[in-house]
């Protein structure tokens, strides 16, 4: 099955994540997969979706071949509706105007907590990572889609450090900590789509990509996954979806 694929893992992540977005939503996106997913949604089933960037852009339309290197360069502002200060665009999240936030992370645990700060003991880290950026703010205030490669070293029993909160220790602990809005919505990987159990808040397989088994997903996960009673099979990326991505990134800077 794998050998017949005509798409890369990044393209698969972008297509599957893009399909989770709904028309009319306001989406906070970073560069890479989040931007591809949101732009793809905009150009297919969700033309009235709005993209916000942490740098201060409301309503961007990225130009093919001119992908921004981060969310803070002028390329992010192409044909935008409005430019705000970075603080004010983040405050839109706090005010409640943003439906979906999008991010990755070096580690994720069964409650969707994300680490992008330290690998190992934070006092003596094996690796100091670049840090939260707006990740903590977005995951504290919006419903989150996480897009990442499915690897055992990423899907860990307990993250070394909670940079961006998921459901913390599960159950009502997120709300108990003072985070009254948002939370993990979906985790999209190259193997499947995961959601979270409504009571325990543990990660749960909702859909498997073509040719992938639940055992394979579990084998690549460092904690026990729940499996939905009605697991779906993901529709493979369509030619039309892949064409949009390849037009956006002709040099395959991100999608290779």
């Amino acid at each position: 099955m794998t050998s017949e694929r005509n798409y890369t893992a990044t393209e698969l992540l972008s297509v599957v994540a893009g399909r989770l977005l709904k028309d009319g939503q306001v989406v906070f996106a970073g560069v890479g997969v989040p931007l591809f997913a949101a732009t793809l949604a905009q150009r297919t089933h969700a033309p009235s979706l709005t993209i916000l960037f942490e740098g201060g852009t409301i309503g961007a339309f990225v130009e093919p071949g001119k992908l921004p290197p981060s969310t803070n360069e002028q390329r992010c502002t192409h044909r935008a509706n409005m430019l705000l200060s970075a603080t004010d665009v983040l405050l839109l999240l706090q005010r409640g105007y943003v439906d979906i936030g999008f991010m990755g992370g070096a580690q994720i645990d069964m409650y969707g907590n994300l680490n992008s700060s330290y690998i190992g003991d934070p006092d003596e880290p094996r690796t100091r990572l670049p840090g939260t950026g707006g990740g903590n703010d977005i995951s504290s205030l919006a419903n989150m889609i996480v897009a990442t490669r499915h690897e055992k070293r990423r899907f860990v029993e307990k993250v070394d450090f909670i940079t961006s909160p998921g459901f913390l220790d599960g159950g009502d602990t997120r709300r108990g900590s003072g985070l009254l809005a948002g939370g993990m919505y979906r985790v999209v990987t190259d193997l499947g789509i995961m959601g979270f159990d409504s009571h325990s808040k543990r990660m749960k397989i909702l859909s498997l990509h073509p040719g992938v088994t639940a055992e394979e997903v579990q084998d690549n996960t460092g904690f026990e996954l729940l499996v939905d009673d009605n697991v779906q099979v993901t529709d493979p990326p369509q030619e039309s979806e892949l064409n949009v991505l390849r037009e956006l990134d002709p040099d395959r800077m991100y999608t290779a």
Partner: peptide, 12 residues
């Protein structure tokens, strides 16, 4: 503000 709560950022 309403972020950084619940995370480990505040511990440090």
């Amino acid at each position: 503000m309403r972020t950084m709560l619940g995370s480990n950022l505040t511990n440090r």
